[in-house]
Design a protein around this nucleic acid. Structure first.
Lengths: 144, 144
DNA sequence: TATAATTAAATTGTACACAACTTAATTGCA
DNA sequence: TGCAATTAAGTTGTGTACAATTTAATTATA
């Protein structure tokens, strides 16, 4: 029992979150490689598969990412033919990201990924639900 | 209810882990800025405050990081006077990272950080313990 | 005991993240 | 209405991450 115990790695909550995050993203890699997507590109696609279009700001709000990350990412995705980027005519500050047909097609390939990943993470339904709730609680506290 | 529901962002476990990780690291920033440490440098220091010295491989095992990340990081920390880097004489493949007196001194400043961060994350003792256990369970599954 | 296999770091190249700043468009208010 | 404040993207610079490869040292074995 030392006054430095609070600085032990195994007394942190942040460290396993950080390590899990990287570990899980690494597990996604082989599955996402088949779609030629990175993890960040994949979560952008998730938003667009649902909404078909939204501006950079909305995308950033959904993913907790800013334009410094999204702008270069979206340019790459545009180059790959997954999305289009168009200035809004009603408010020229906004850039509207629109999923292409090509991008929409990827959805059918992606649909098998969550089950494969579920196998990697390997928690019971109850454990997954508990973890989910706690993470969103932390996220709410941290993002406010 | 669509067959694409599994691709919704709010049906993922990975996304809140990823978002939490980035959100928490961002919360650390003002505290770590006072010590002139990044988050990754901070967790390296955590290992060294405990062990005083270890090689790059051991550090990587503890933090789930490889030499591609650690080598440049450790060179920066050496330049700041926090650690020394020495080839082992018994096995010249190993580089031994040793915390300096300067680095050891930082521990007294760092000791207040965990409590401050606890306030940000703001979970009950039970919630924190549950979250901790589930994260290490996921981590074990993901890293094997 | 030479050499093949393994191991530990380092290097190279790519892809985020994000702070801080810039630019251009829109809003709000004196 | 005109200008200050705000807002949305984009840009710049720094710092991780990590895959893939290279280099050098050690170990194992034919």
């Amino acid at each position: 029992m030392s006054k430095y115990d609070c600085l032990r790695l195994d007394h942190q909550l942040c460290f396993p979150i950080y390590a899990c995050s990287r570990g899980i993203v690494k597990k996604y890699k082989p599955f996402l490689d088949e779609l030629d997507l990175t993890y960040t590109q994949y979560i952008v696609m998730m938003v667009l598969w649902e909404k078909q279009e939204c501006n950079v700001k909305e995308l950033g709000n959904a993913l907790f990412l800013d334009s410094g990350t999204l702008t270069p990412l979206l340019k790459k995705m545009e180059a790959k033919g997954l999305v289009s980027r168009t200035r809004s005519t009603t408010d020229e500050r906004n850039v509207i990201i629109c999923i292409t047909e090509e991008g929409m097609k990827l959805r059918d390939q992606a649909v098998t990924i969550p089950a494969k990943m579920g196998g990697c993470v390997d928690l019971s339904k109850d454990e997954a639900k508990t973890l989910y709730k706690l993470l969103y609680k932390v996220l709410a506290n941290v993002e406010k």
